[in-house]
Amino acid sequence: MDPQALIDSIRKNTRLTDAGEALIISKLIPRQFRKKEFINSEDEINRYTNFIVNGSARTYYIDHNGQEHTIQLAVAGWWIGDYASFILQQPGKLITEALEPASTISISYDDLQWLYEKVPELERFFRLLTQNAYASFQQRVLHGMSLDAENRYLAFRESYPAMDQLISQKHIASYLGMSPEFLSKIKKRLLLKEKQLRRMSR
């Protein structure tokens, strides 16, 4: 396991001492998941917070009609899981699955609480991470209420270009609250617009 990507992410947001880095590394748990394997399941307590090293994943819930609704998408360098279940240590409502073979570096809830006491910089890092996640979630809700489907996709593509390339249209459509077929029509329409603009600029 190479924890460097995780350590680099922490150091970008806070001043981490060498001693603090060593303590964090001592508590990291490398995990491997097959495609479609669950990282956490519905009705179980999410015991780990997960940093994706390789691969991609999604978190979703299933409504009473059996319809899946994607809550979060993540690629390498992102954190993923059922955060409510992890923070409250209660059975969760969400499922997190690997969208392809994936590697994560995980930290257990108990170890994270211990690290907060021993490495205050890590608590600051997760506070900033949580604040940014909340801001992104709020923006997503506002987009859902104020933007039409095409502009929701454009906002997604602008904010997460890597995800638009790496994650399947089916899961992006679910994340944006539309069918894959409708997203396909939007992408074809946008491609046509882009071609027309290129012709006009010649």
Rank of each mutant, 00 (worst) to 15 (best):
M163N: 01
S168V: 12
P180A: 08
D164A: 15
E181A: 12
P161K: 00
I167A: 03
K188R: 13
P161Y: 03
L190F: 12
L166G: 02
L183M: 11
L166T: 07
L190E: 11
Y175K: 11
P180G: 07
H171M: 13
I167L: 10
K185N: 09
L190P: 08
A162P: 12
S184V: 08
M178G: 11
K185M: 09
M178A: 13
H171N: 13
K188P: 09
L166S: 04
A173Y: 01
K185G: 07
I172S: 02
M163C: 01
Q169C: 12
S168R: 12
L176N: 05
H171S: 10
P161E: 04
H171A: 07
L176F: 07
Y160P: 01
K188M: 13
L183W: 04
L176P: 00
F182D: 04
F182C: 02
E181F: 09
S174V: 02
K185Y: 09
K185D: 08
M163I: 08
I172F: 00
A162G: 09
K187Y: 10
K170W: 10
Q169K: 13
Y160W: 09
L183A: 06
Q169Y: 10
K188W: 12
S174C: 05
P180D: 04
L190Y: 08
F182K: 02
A173N: 02
Y175G: 07
K187N: 10
K188L: 14
I186P: 01
